[in-house]
Simulated scan of single mutants.
Amino acid sequence: MVEVYRGLLDTSNPIGWIERQERVRQAEAGIDFDYLEKEIPSAVEQTLEGIDRVSTIVRAMKTFSHQGHKEQAPADLNEAVTATVTVTRHQVSDVADLVLELADLPPVRCNIADLNQVFLNLIVNAADAIEETGRRGVITVATALDGEEVVARISDTGGGIPEDVLPKIFDPFFTTKDVGRGSGQGLPLARGVVQEGHGGTLTVESVPGEGTTFSARIPAGGLAEKEADVAAPSPAAVG
């Protein structure tokens, strides 16, 4: 079209205005100009959105798979939580909506790779709990600052945990999942990472029929140096 327009502006071959208009109409009709004018901007916008999504996932995978170290180091807990949500969103999206509620947090001295695994385990467990209800639900991942501690909460709208089961959920090898779906090691390892590995606590609140909330509390300053030397588990995977 630009070539046609430039050709019509060529003064070395003067033509009348009516003929100019006809040539423009023919050229636009030949390429279905109205359709392209509408669709090309939309296609470019969708392409840019796709590139942005891919970039977000790649950044999240890079953050999530960050190699852990025995020693703890200051890290952005919100970035870790966001990365884990991004990594799990596709797996969870069939059964639940994921909601992020992030507060302003200071850098947290921790082993971020281990905590990523804890968050992953809790989000997947939440999705499993919702899936068992047969209805679509919501998983809310929130962070907060409470004095010298940071708190990460993973809540679901699943069926809740029965009162007789609640005291056992952190017991090694205890699971309510079908054979092949759960090993009963995820929650004990998660608690070990939070408590022994970071000097924090991992607690649960559940209302049968309404849902469950796991809360991981971690000292923002990390373990005392002498405690860090004997800090526990650094699991390659929690599940």
Rank of each mutant, 00 (worst) to 15 (best):
E227G: 00
G209V: 00
R23Q: 12
D178P: 01
V4R: 06
T56Q: 10
S206H: 09
N125T: 07
K226S: 14
V95Q: 05
T11K: 09
I161G: 09
A220H: 08
R135D: 10
Q72N: 05
R25S: 14
R217M: 12
I112N: 06
L120P: 00
H90S: 13
G180K: 11
G197R: 03
W17E: 15
T157Q: 12
D52H: 12
A73D: 07
T133R: 12
L8T: 05
I139V: 15
I31R: 11
D146Q: 10
M1D: 03
P106L: 04
T213A: 06
V141M: 03
P172T: 01
S234N: 08
N78L: 05
D128W: 15
L98Q: 06
G159I: 03
K177W: 09
D94L: 12
D34S: 11
A73I: 09
T11S: 10
R191N: 03
D164A: 10
G16D: 15
I218Y: 06
H69P: 00
E131R: 14
E196K: 08
T56G: 04
Q21V: 06
P41A: 15
E28N: 01
R20T: 01
A126I: 12
P219S: 11
D171C: 01
S183T: 14
P188E: 06
A75Y: 01
D128T: 12
L8S: 04
